[in-house]
Design a protein around this nucleic acid. Structure first.
Lengths: 110, 110
DNA sequence: AACCATACCTAAACATCTTATATATGTAAT
DNA sequence: ATTACATATATAAGATGTTTAGGTATGGTT
């Protein structure tokens, strides 16, 4: 069983949170960052990442600007105004969820 | 946006962990327990719960026994031998995942 | 009789992921 | 030169796991 199946539903929040902190990131950078932060445990697949970014952008939460860096095109994403609100809202939701989940995981035998 | 979408992928682990602790539970009891433990924040829908239980059973991780209690049929689930191994394995996976996710969520602004 | 809690179940629609494939540039090794 | 790998983006088919909405049935309360 691949641990990455756990990413389901949390990828958007991860993106929103990273942009909340870093201000501006491009797709490849996001996937590298998550991999490094998880010590290589989690690799966001491209097939999940790019559609997620596009959906967030289509929903008006992200804004983009494309730049040419060292001969390669980069598409930078940043939070829109509504994206900033949504980010803090969803991060709160995840925290509540994680608290409950960890409470279950940390249950002591009866 | 409903917070319950976050349950994706973690429902099976929740079930396995609860059974690991309680030994024996029936579906309705599992949904009540999660709701109480989350202070009403998370309601596992029946349309997610029962298919998840059936899949775990079909995979040989759960065993069942049906009992009639107060005139109503209850289907009790418990971990099989392989279910116990799988439970501890998946719980470890989730902990690793949660560590990474919380590390991202708890990032301090730069 | 109506309503709610208990207790199980399933199917259609939807969202999100994996896997596979595609395109293109820069750099390092053979 | 050409192979290989990292960088960088994108899409499509298929699998998976939800939500939503419905169904059946019993027991207790109003």
């Amino acid at each position: 069983m691949n641990s990455s199946y756990l990413l389901k539903g949390s990828l958007q929040v991860i993106i929103l949170r990273l942009l909340e902190i870093h201000g501006r990131m491009y797709g490849y950078e996001i996937s590298r960052t998550v991999k490094e932060m998880s010590h290589g445990e989690f690799q966001i697949t491209e097939g999940a990442l790019y559609p997620a970014l596009h959906k967030l952008e289509a929903g008006g939460l992200l804004e983009t600007s494309t730049e040419l860096v060292d001969g390669r095109a980069r598409k930078y994403y940043s939070l829109s105004r509504s994206g900033k609100n949504e980010a803090s809202s969803r991060v709160s939701d995840v925290r509540i969820f994680l608290d409950s989940l960890q409470q279950i995981l940390n249950l002591k035998p009866v």
